[in-house]
Design a protein around this nucleic acid. Sequence first.
DNA 1: CGAGGTGTTGATTCCCTTCAATTACCGTGG
DNA 2: CCACGGTAATTGAAGGGAATCAACACCTCG
Lengths: 209, 209
Amino acid sequence: MRAAAPTRPADNTPAIGVVRQFVAEQTIYREGERAAHFVLVIDGLVRSCSTFADGRRFIGAFFSVGDIFGFECQATYEASAEAVCDSTLVFYPARDPVADGAGLGGVPRQVLGSVLGRIAQARGHARLLGRCSASEKLSAFLVQCSQRSKARELVTLEMTRQDIADYLGLTVETVSRCLGQLRRDGMIEFVSARQLKLLDLAALRAASM
Amino acid sequence: MRAAAPTRPADNTPAIGVVRQFVAEQTIYREGERAAHFVLVIDGLVRSCSTFADGRRFIGAFFSVGDIFGFECQATYEASAEAVCDSTLVFYPARDPVADGAGLGGVPRQVLGSVLGRIAQARGHARLLGRCSASEKLSAFLVQCSQRSKARELVTLEMTRQDIADYLGLTVETVSRCLGQLRRDGMIEFVSARQLKLLDLAALRAASM
DNA sequence: CGAGGTGTTGATTCCCTTCAATTACCGTGG
DNA sequence: CCACGGTAATTGAAGGGAATCAACACCTCG
């Protein structure tokens, strides 16, 4: 806590944020734009949404007065923000917290990236659960597994079908059927029930939307 | 960056983490437990899961080597963590980052709480989308709205039915039908299409699981 | 070899979507 | 003030995708 400097005029203190007003339906920032700010809602309501290539829309969150949004673990926004009704917002410059030297309350700096990574993971998960079909979920899941796997095309599933079902919001039967369908479609091949080859990773990626 | 002290014996440097091994299916921590650590996966696979009162299970994420998990915006874990297969983990003490004096790369400290709040929001959202019926989603949504509303029992919906549908992973028709059902059940009452009274908040909360 | 958990497959049911039509709402302009 | 147009919301009927119920195959381990 630094003591105030009473003799310095107010307009000499640096501005730390900018207030802006938005009308209903106005875009605040777009998906893919440089994530230069995070934003505090003073008044109104904001929605964070992303759109699929085929037009499906998904709203990840509503932000109302007091909420701060716009945190990203990457350089660009992964969803758009739009004013639901007339809204007043404060924009704070977002210095890249991961690149920044400062840690998080004594915690190793690298941890900070993990926190933001958790947000991205949870958001992506919600989007998958909210707006995707069973086969899209399975495709996305296999792509995720592939990214973790040493050999991109050979995936070992350490978890049971029930685990997969509970992760994707499905039943074991549906998981099994969708995997069977992917096999019949020539996308994957079973080495065993728990180990499979991804024969067409690009197609899987496309099928996961 | 502090230079190493070459003459000091290694066992005099303070331990900053503890390595522990877990066997398949072993619990790492339980939902509701004090969130005293966050955890780095060195080897193996971990699932983060929560269970509903009626037995439904939801897995929020799988964590594999290199992932750090266990971040909470509250004092307790909001989900359990379990080893999927034999796993090696590092436990770091988790000082409460919100209470801590240090900020986040020059960013106001309060922002930090928001980041963690976003995680909690996204996790809760995923859980809702993954394992709840349409009427449960609507109930949960109304409870959320109520928490934001000045007058807890009078909620003004600034957003359209389409917005609600895209948030809950439903269609406008289903949203409309579920709201109608809640009205017929005496849970809510319409002042107008965009404004409604919550007649039985406790029942709504219960219906949202 | 048998027991039990795990995974697959089939038949049926049901919840939600889709398609379609009607009604309510709200701002505009006559 | 009210007719008008367009969007938003509700309601109904039909269809589909995933759940449920049920049976069977597979693998592991005692």
